[in-house]
Each structure stands twice: as structure tokens, then as C-alpha cells.
């Protein structure tokens, strides 16, 4: 699966946005990011999964906020004023991803992307599309569509 994913990435010079959750760094394709904004209190939704923090008002649109930390199986975020929301487009929907901070914008080529090592956890294999080694940092590249499989993103 991982090798298949890497094959899909054959494309030179792509830009990624890197961000931090806890002590780990992740990145997503910059093309799917609409904007980055500060944290505002969300209105909780009843009967929602734990990682859905609620909805906020994004200039008149109702935007669901995903606690990316919880979604990736880490501990639930405790949002502060310093947290940021990455507003990202996934298929037809727009969602906000709560992260601790945006750290970098990376320009990479295919060679920078390494395949995801064989790890036991399904979760990591599900969302991780590759690993980048930049300046001795390890940045995990996330496939956003994989985070919200069809039954969720298309149920409505």
C-alpha cells in the first residue's frame, strides 16, 4: 500500500504546509489548504465522534472543526488562543483542522519523500502517505481524504 502511494506522488516540486501537533510534525498538500486562522470557541455537536470539536462560523458558512490530534489517535487537544485552524478542502466539503502551530511551508521533490515504514498500527498506515526528512526533522505527510472516509464525508 505504501509503495502504491509513493508511486502516486510522482510529481516534481510540490509545496506542503507543515504543522505541529504535540512533539510531532505533519504536513499536507498546500493545494488543499484554503486559509489558516486562529482558534475560536466551537459550538459542540450532539452525537458527534470525539474528534469533532464542533462547528464555527467561517464568514457565514458553518465549518466543522476536527481535533487532528484526537483523529490521529493522540491525546485530545486542549485548545488555547495559540492554536490554529487549518481550513482545508476535502472533496466537496470544507473542514477546519485544529493543530498547535503551523511551522513551515516546504517545497519538496519526489526524492524527499520516503515510504512509510512498516508499522503495526493501522491508523498510521491509513493516513500516512510518506515521510519527509528535512533538516534532521521527520515530517509525516498526511492524506486528508483518508482521514475522513466516505461514509463520513459523503453520508450527508
Amino acid at each position: 500500500m505504501s509503495s502504491f502511494a509513493v508511486k502516486n506522488l510522482v510529481q516534481a516540486d510540490r509545496k506542503l504546509i507543515a504543522f505541529r501537533i504535540g512533539d510531532q510534525e505533519f504536513c499536507v498538500n498546500i493545494m488543499s489548504v484554503r486559509e489558516i486562522r486562529g482558534w475560536t470557541q466551537a459550538t459542540p455537536l450532539p452525537h458527534a465522534p470525539a474528534y469533532v470539536m464542533g462547528v464555527i462560523n467561517l464568514r457565514g458558512a458553518v465549518l466543522p472543526i476536527i481535533d487532528l490530534s484526537a483523529r490521529l489517535g493522540m491525546k485530545d487537544a486542549e485548545p488555547t488562543a495559540r492554536h490554529v485552524i487549518i481550513v482545508a478542502q476535502m472533496k466537496t466539503k470544507v473542514v477546519g483542522l485544529l493543530v498547535e502551530a503551523v511551522s513551515d511551508i516546504l517545497t519538496i521533490t519526489e526524492e524527499n519523500i520516503q515510504p512509510v515504514p512498516e508499522v503495526s498500527s493501522d491508523l498510521e498506515r491509513q493516513y500516512a502517505r510518506g515521510i519527509l526528512a528535512i533538516d534532521k526533522r521527520m515530517i509525516c505527510m498526511i492524506e486528508l481524504d483518508a482521514l475522513f472516509p466516505d461514509q463520513e464525508s459523503e453520508a450527508a
Binding site: H47, V55, L63
Partner: peptide, 17 residues
């Protein structure tokens, strides 16, 4: 009235936002 379904799914017990 704002749609919840536009960016999320239907929420049981909630008509809209």
C-alpha cells in the same frame, strides 16, 4: 438558516444551524 450538511453530515436531532 445555515446548512450543516454542506460541510458536515446530518446531525440527529438537529435541523440546521
Amino acid at each position: 438558516i445555515k446548512s450543516l450538511e454542506a460541510n458536515y453530515t446530518h446531525v440527529p436531532g438537529i435541523a440546521a444551524a
